[in-house]
Design a protein around this nucleic acid. Structure first.
Lengths: 202, 202
DNA sequence: GGCGGTATTGAAAAAGTGTCAATAAGGTGG
DNA sequence: CCACCTTATTGACACTTTTTCAATACCGCC
């Protein structure tokens, strides 16, 4: 039944295996619905080994979330050239495609974030900020978004909206195409920034 | 040290006490960071009593979130008269003020939502839908928002954005006034709906 | 082909959740 | 004013899950 021979991996391999498995398992369960027992069995290791690598359950969760976040950031980097709005377009497209393709990893990140502890929330916040900041950073020539407190706020909101929209679109596309979705998201940004200019500039 | 005399309340009083305490404690911790031990000690009761009232930890959490949700819905009902955009304005103002005043309760709701189980997520979703649907429901005369798949989606996103914006504004106002914030939120709605009309209508 | 470093294990302690028969507040009728 | 009786409340106990750590055995290396 159970392979009685223990297999010995390098720390890097083992770590990677456990993190991957964690991302997968935490996409559908919450942390306390996932017992170390299950995780260990699924990975074909003893419970002790997980503690050896991550110290405790919470730290493991943190590592899983961090991994998902890194992945997301890496895979949705906007291109370095092109007009500002086109770069946003490319970035959003990559984002949508990423969430569609890596639904599991993304859910692990998002679910872990709100439910988790302070440190996990921090990872999530940082990730979100990184993605939002791109809008300010990535425009050496054309200025889509002036940097004011109000626009900072709005871009933050736009990020939240993007996340929500993509997730609920995946759940129920309702006849809206991927390109429709991307168009809505991309055009929302200048529309929202416009609001801060008609209204208060702080 | 410990008051050796047990105090006997009516079930309603005790329930209310425990829920209030739960809202307060769960605003800063996640559910599994909150032990029944701590809760019981904080409430000045035995662990057993909590189980008597709520059955198990998860049901307790659910009740806490439901309480926070009910509170929110009740206190941010839009007025029944006035022009559509004015009603939205009043509703958003009430929402912002509510979150400022009941920061704890609101955090318990939001945090519980993403991290919690299916049933808790459902409470959150229902609450959010209720608030979003107001935009569609509450306009017997003027039509701000046509009801299409794309606008449904966008309103959903707007709701998420609103939530994010208010929370991050509270964390760092950065010179943006309450009225500025409200104005941004209110005007964002038509701005976003406008995007769906230039772009795809599905 | 044995040796040594270290990845891995398994059993046992610790922490937390849930159960339930026993206890005692405190309103009520005498 | 006091027993009494209903039922809110307790505390000790069973069970599940996490965490620790000394012992084990895999595998590259000489």
């Amino acid at each position: 039944m159970t392979a009685t021979t223990r297999t010995r991996l390098t720390p890097e391999q083992r770590r990677a295996q456990l993190l991957d498995l964690g991302v997968q398992l935490l996409a559908t369960r919450s942390l306390d619905e996932l017992s170390i027992d299950l995780l260990a069995e699924e990975a074909g290791i003893s419970r002790g080994l997980l503690y050896h690598y991550f110290g405790n359950k919470h730290a493991f969760h943190e590592a899983v979330v961090q991994r998902a976040a890194d992945d997301l950031i890496a895979q949705t980097a906007p291109p370095v050239d092109g007009a500002p709005l086109e770069r946003v377009h490319a970035s959003i497209t990559a984002y949508v495609d990423y969430v569609v393709a890596n639904h599991e990893g993304y859910l692990s990140l998002v679910k872990g974030a709100a439910g988790g502890s302070e440190s996990i929330r921090a990872i999530y916040e940082r990730t979100r900020s990184d993605m939002g900041d791109r809008v300010f950073r990535e425009h050496p020539e054309g200025d889509i978004v002036p940097d004011t407190p109000a626009t900072r706020l709005v871009v933050r909101g736009w990020t939240a909206m993007t996340e929500e929209l993509v997730l609920s679109w995946i759940a129920e596309p309702n006849g809206v195409s991927r390109d429709d979705l991307v168009a809505i998201l991309v055009e929302s940004l200048p529309a929202l920034v416009g609001v801060t200019q008609v209204a208060p500039e702080a």
